[in-house]
Design a protein around this nucleic acid. Structure first.
Lengths: 191, 191
DNA sequence: ACTAGACAAACGAACGTTCGTTGGTTTAAT
DNA sequence: ATTAAACCAACGAACGTTCGTTTGTCTAGT
């Protein structure tokens, strides 16, 4: 067996996995070392502290979602198409980075105050992309005139952010079908 | 100041609060004691173990949601009305038991295997109530014929289970308005 | 081609602290 | 007088982290 040495990237990746699975406080540095075939103390060759690891993982999540939103906002098309692009982008980020996404969504509140407020800012900025497109749709008459962009954005993001709790890539529903179902529900609900 | 003695109920209630705030692993028995003006060790007059506390809180959550679903299923009316009843019941449970709900939703996975599988069962049973009513709506022609009850139930529950992450009882949107918005979105989406 | 130096990665022991929990004793209400 | 509730001291284990040392791999200078 060919065993290569570990890099900081490997440690952050493993941290994302364990933080996603067992939570930040439920993961010890020794757990994390074991995941990589190392002692807990060896991780400090790559990392300043445990909190530092959480910052790296969450920060990566924030970046992923922000650049996904930016791409969707710059895409051409009407509000419906752009909303679908936003949803598809979100699905891609979550499914391609499950551990990072889960940690970003569930463990960011374990960050100390300064880092946490930066993340809340990033999250609100991401949410604003949804508000914006929904607002455009209302203004253009494509969506219900009494729709509240702020509230509907929260509803749609609630669904998207819950994907990690139930979606199985190996299941019957593939990625494209999922995006279609999500977009359809966001547009028309049950009727 | 009149200080009365604490009961097991007080301890479980405080545990719900701290577990909701800081997570199960982020809460120590000494934290919990401090919350009640006690030493950590004093809690063992009321409780067998820390895990025992989590079981009590989560179990209470499961009971609350299950009895809410039972009531809504027994209510009269067509699928739309019954779905609204289901949603209103969920909102009541969450807003009247915020700490228990948050712990039930986020910390149940920290339970040991046997207790956790019992909770998953309860959760699936609760979800089945949504599937059932949506299925009725489809059969009765009240909802889209190509709606997938399993998937739509997940979508609606995703929104409901995210309430704890953003809803503020002191905000502009009161409970009745919230239920209306939720039901409207579930029925018609953005259009 | 050979070797000495530099350097990052990992080890292993130990640190001070906190953890969940126990057992024995005191307090206060019934 | 009984009893539940709370205190207090202490336990062993686990925690995050530090430190000095060892390992292996590149890099320069000969």
């Amino acid at each position: 067996m060919v065993t290569t040495r570990n890099t900081r990237g490997d440690v952050v990746r493993a941290a994302g996995k364990l933080f996603a699975e067992k939570g930040y406080h439920g993961t010890s540095m020794r757990d994390l070392g074991k995941e990589l075939g190392l002692l807990g103390s060896s991780l400090y060759s790559h990392v300043d502290s445990k909190q530092d690891l959480l910052v790296s993982v969450v920060e990566e999540g924030a970046t992923l979602f922000e650049s996904s939103a930016r791409a969707a906002l710059e895409a051409p098309g009407g509000p419906e198409l752009r909303l679908q692009a936003l949803i598809a982008g979100h699905v891609d980020v979550v499914l391609d980075n499950m551990d990072v996404s889960r940690t970003f969504l569930n463990e960011a509140r374990m960050l100390d105050h300064s880092h946490r407020s930066r993340v809340l800012e990033a999250r609100d900025h991401y949410e604003a992309a949804f508000r914006e497109i929904i607002g455009e749709g209302v203004a253009a008459g494509a969506f219900r005139s009494d729709a509240d962009p702020k509230l509907e954005a929260i509803f749609i993001l609630s669904i998207l952010n819950s994907l990690e709790r139930w979606y199985q890539p190996t299941g019957l529903l593939d990625r494209g079908g999922l995006v279609d179902r999500l977009t359809g529900f966001a547009m028309h609900g049950l009727t």
